[in-house]
């Protein structure tokens, strides 16, 4: 291998004199993180949240875990005291934003089209349309996907992963990146526990193998069980 450029073309004439061989490549050291662009926009969002005193949480999960139901119930009980806004991410439709508005909070829908996650740049533009000065709590409901959104910092205070009991207790091991990246795991749909083979203790053990510090709250968006603890958690994390 050529020690100058690393290529394996060692035929006669292989050298690094650009005059002799103008087609020959030169090397440039880059050493740049390819998430750098997203991270720069995330840092801008984060400073906006700090200036405006908006506690921001990025809700991540697989599709159908009940993120929107958790949010509508949270809005119904907290919104009168603590102003809530929501950025909704989905590939298509503004159905979820409509559900949030019907619950009484401001909502901006981002359709990612072919995209599988929200990025910090898109969230930054959504922020321009929200009344941040009067908002206490902002939820960013990410695209339902347990893989890609783990990599993209949106500037949030924390990621919250929602896992429903119908999904299988080994999800933290199957999708470890998301559980590593999250501060809190909400185990939702616990009203269905009598009907499914799901041991919350096992799930919590798996999640803590990956992220020993992850906090856990068990809730049911249907019956409201566990919501007192969840709402206290939110209130304790307001800025």
């Amino acid at each position: 291998m050529c020690t100058t450029c690393g290529c394996t073309n060692l035929k006669p004439g292989h050298d690094h004199n650009d005059k002799k061989n103008p087609e020959h490549a030169r090397m440039i050291e880059v050493e740049q993180n390819i998430l750098g662009k997203n991270n720069r926009f995330a840092a801008l969002n984060r400073s906006t949240f700090a200036e405006q005193k908006v506690a921001t949480f990025n809700l991540v999960s697989s599709p159908g875990s009940g993120k929107t139901s958790v949010l509508t119930k949270t809005i119904q009980s907290l919104h009168a005291k603590h102003s809530i806004a929501v950025i909704e991410g989905d590939q298509q439709t503004d159905n979820d934003a409509e559900r949030i508005r019907a619950a009484g909070a401001e909502a901006i829908q981002i359709n990612t089209g072919k995209g599988c996650h929200l990025d910090a740049h898109g969230v930054g533009h959504a922020l321009e349309q929200l009344p941040l000065t009067t908002t206490d709590l902002l939820f960013i409901e990410n695209v339902g996907n347990l893989v890609c959104p783990a990599a993209f910092d949106l500037g949030e205070a924390a990621k919250i992963v929602v896992l429903s009991v119908t999904e299988g207790e080994d999800k933290p091991l199957k999708y470890p990146d998301m559980f590593k990246a999250s501060k809190l795991m909400l185990i939702n749909k616990i009203d269905l526990l009598p009907y499914v083979d799901f041991d919350p203790a096992k799930t919590i053990d798996y999640a803590r193998r990956i992220n020993p510090d992850i906090e856990v709250i068990l809730v049911s968006a249907k019956t409201g069980e566990g919501f007192k603890v969840w709402e206290e958690w939110l209130i304790n994390n307001l800025i």
Binding site: R26, M27, V30, E31, Q32, N33, I34
Partner: peptide
């Protein structure tokens, strides 16, 4: 846990 562009060969 990082993904970095290390270097480029350019003309």
């Amino acid at each position: 846990d990082h993904v970095n562009i290390k270097s480029l060969a350019v003309v």
